[in-house]
């Protein structure tokens, strides 16, 4: 990762005179410009994604076929949808380990409660989202009111969510997801004539919606302000508690919806369905360059998701084992953190 960044800087170096020549005194060098651009947008990650795609195309004929690209996009969309909540929570300096639990809860709802007499499935889903949202809100409230670390409370909430849905469904995992849910993420399905599966379109809309919400609305500003400095936000008459409650409620509700889509994709649902997506969501957020408490955005997470998914797809295609992938996941996270997430020196904090 570091070498690639170095490489991109080197190739840009000859351009430096052209850019800086008109105004040498106050002009920044090309390297500095690129660095400041990198700070605002995950350029290196995007270039890496393209490089990995190129590597895959060179090594595997047919890798860039529409069919296989669609499957990659579906995988991206699933991880991306699961990471929305995590991005928001990380932006307010929290972390959400309950994602895994709520994903399972959503998946169980759609596979087990489809044939409850008198209650149609859509009503059931709304009910699940409302219950999940309420639980998430309670988590946010408890963390903020009693200053408890979110790791513990979200861990407990996820466990409770899995337990309650399992109790309600009698622990059965027999029935599969209904057809329309399966079609959402089937790689060969299309959306209103567009040749991509619905889940990809939903993800695209979500990227736009979350970005607008975060950066162009008052609520988004409140959220970012809360993450940047809770004390300053309080002084600016922002109810940080309300922000915490809302963000955790939204995160839980979105995780339930992600679980619904995942149920259609995975086929069979068990209690561990959510775990890989929990770890991937944290990895994608970190990889995209969103720091705890900001700065950050969902577009960065999106780039993180694209990189994470293409790397693992290419590695699987090239016959690498799961072991190599896991190791690479870890190394990639560390490298991304080294680029962004460094904290101030202790001696500068005195």
């Amino acid at each position: 990762m570091m070498t690639t960044q170095q490489g991109s800087l080197d190739t840009a170096a000859p351009l430096a005179p052209d850019i800086t020549a008109p105004a040498p005194p106050e002009g920044l060098s090309a390297a500095q410009r690129l660095l400041s651009l990198q700070r605002r947008f995950p350029l290196v990650q995007l270039l890496l994604t393209v490089a990995v795609l190129g590597w895959g195309a060179a090594a595997m004929p047919g890798f860039l076929d529409p069919t296989s690209l669609r499957s990659v996009l579906v995988l991206c969309a699933l991880t991306g949808l699961a990471s929305i909540g995590q991005t928001l929570v990380v932006l307010i300096r929290g972390i959400d380990l309950s994602l895994a639990g709520f994903i399972v809860a959503g998946a169980v709802t759609v596979t087990q409660f489809g044939d409850v007499p008198g209650v149609p499935l859509p009503v059931m889903l709304v009910l699940a989202v409302v219950c999940g949202g309420a639980t998430g809100g309670l988590v946010g409230y408890l963390c903020h009111r009693f200053a408890i670390h979110p790791i513990i409370v979200t861990l407990a909430a996820g466990s409770i969510a899995v337990g309650v849905t399992a109790v309600l469904s009698g622990g059965g995992t027999g029935a599969g997801a209904p057809g329309w849910v399966v079609r959402l993420s089937a790689p060969m399905s299309s959306t209103f004539g567009l040749p991509v599966p619905p889940v990809v379109v939903i993800w695209g809309l979500a990227v736009v919606a979350v970005s607008v919400l975060l950066h162009r609305t008052r609520s988004g500003r409140r959220l970012l302000a809360t993450g940047a400095s809770p004390v300053a936000a309080e002084l600016a008459h922002i109810s940080t508690r309300k922000v915490w409650v809302t963000v955790y409620a939204v995160s839980a509700a979105l995780a339930i919806l992600a679980g619904v889509v995942l149920a259609g994709f995975a086929g069979n649902v068990d209690n561990r369905l959510g775990n890989p997506y929990l770890f991937q969501s944290i990895a994608a957020v970190v990889l995209g360059g969103t720091a705890f408490g900001g700065p950050g955005s969902y577009t960065r997470t999106t780039v993180g998701v694209l990189l994470l998914t293409t790397v693992s797809t290419v590695l699987v295609g090239l016959g690498f084992q799961e072991a190599d992938q896991q190791i690479l996941n870890g190394v990639v996270i560390l490298a991304a953190m080294a680029l962004y997430g460094r904290e101030r020196r202790l001696r500068d904090q005195v």
Binding site: Q321, A323, I327, G341
Partner: peptide, 25 residues
């Protein structure tokens, strides 16, 4: 590295899990 412990140890979690799988599939 002045990195967040939770992220570092998550990365280590991945690396060690991978090593475990390599040692004994």
């Amino acid at each position: 590295g002045r990195l967040q412990p939770i992220v570092v140890s998550l990365a280590m979690f991945f690396v060690l899990t991978g090593l475990d799988l390599k040692l004994s599939p």
